[in-house]
Design a binder for these strands. Structure first.
Lengths: 94, 94
DNA sequence: CAGTATCCAGACCGATACTG
DNA sequence: CAGTATCGGTCTGGATACTG
């Protein structure tokens, strides 16, 4: 599951954007050059499947969709933050 | 860095083996079918570079090499364990 | 705007053979 | 036994165009 989630150069970026409140597909695609709807949707689908994200569709025209972190997703990111802290600590020790 | 470490299907396996005390290249290659010296060495080099592993060469013939987790490497794995715990928790809630 | 389908270049990695 | 080099198939993912 890790591999599938993190073993993709976009996943971390996408998650951090969603955490910042950028949670609509179009907006997400525009946050980084090279990210396309195809790859974005693949990643989003995976993360929904893994219980990291939740998808909300509003029955409007034009359609509106938002993705939100689930409670698990939030804990997941927090744990990742801790990993980053660890790494920064290491760098400081040098 | 995460991407580089975890975004490879072998890394997690290799690290868990080393944690179990299987820390010589030859032995590691034999732990999983499909793992070759080339890929193994690539991964080991990366992990040494990232400060996760430490390489110890004994000046013997035939040569003997061992890899060990650094303190950072141990914390790194512990944090990964916590991620796994989180995921198991999630599964239980269903 | 959201999402899917198609195409194709290029990275990746497994197999093999080789050196020290 | 440790490590490097080379080759070649596979599969990812970026570009593009399309539907609802």
């Amino acid at each position: 599951m890790f591999e599938d989630c993190i073993g993709c150069k976009w996943t971390l970026h996408i998650l951090s954007q969603i955490r910042c409140g950028i949670n609509r597909p179009r907006a997400l695609v525009k946050t980084k050059k090279g990210l396309t709807t195809k790859v974005l949707n693949e990643r989003l689908a995976k993360m929904v499947q893994f219980g990291i994200l939740e998808k909300i569709s509003y029955p409007e025209v034009p359609p509106r969709v938002e993705y939100q972190l689930t409670p698990f997703g939030k804990k997941f990111l927090e744990t990742l933050d801790r990993l980053e802290d660890l790494h920064l600590e290491l760098m400081n020790d040098l």
